[in-house]
């Protein structure tokens, strides 16, 4: 069964933690189309949380098109269209960049320095990927 890592005392509601973890598993193809998720009851019991919390997370995942509800069978990972997953990836990336930028600003790094740092990283990653693909 898939493992959830829940922090009950964090400020993030538990349903959101479950939602984000499933979202991530689908986006990085750990969960592929057609995979069945454990039932609400199974998850609730495994992580000791209220079943309504899991229903809420699953409901939201269905609404956003990640899961499809099959009557009597449970929740299945839905087909992820190319452009949709691209859009989701951009949304996640946007969040990460926002955090990075505000972190850098707080440390007093200026715009130019930050841009240079990012450009260097991209360059480095790019050449590493090239070597890997050749080897």
């Amino acid at each position: 069964m898939i493992q959830f890592n829940i922090e009950a005392s964090s400020g993030i509601p538990i349903y959101k933690q479950v939602f984000e973890q499933v979202e991530r598993m689908i986006n990085n193809a750990y969960l592929v189309e057609g995979t069945f998720l454990p039932s609400v009851r199974q998850v609730a019991n495994a992580i000791d949380v209220n079943p309504m919390t899991i229903s809420k997370a699953y409901g939201l995942l269905e609404e956003r098109g990640y899961l499809t509800r099959l009557r009597g069978k449970g929740m299945m990972v839905a087909h992820q269209t190319e452009e949709r997953s691209k859009k989701e990836k951009m949304m996640i990336l946007d969040k990460m960049i926002t955090e990075l930028v505000s972190g850098a600003m707080q440390m007093g790094i200026n715009k130019q320095e930050l841009m240079t740092l990012i450009a260097e990283k991209v360059e480095k990653q790019d050449s590493a990927d090239n070597i890997n693909s050749q080897g």
């Binding site: 009950a8 005392s9 538990i14 992580i47 000791d48 949380v49 209220n50 309504m52 919390t53």
Partner: peptide, 10 residues
């Protein structure tokens, strides 16, 4: 104790 209810209360 808040942690008692975080997992179970809705």
């Amino acid at each position: 104790i808040t942690s008692d209810l975080e997992r179970v209360a809705n």
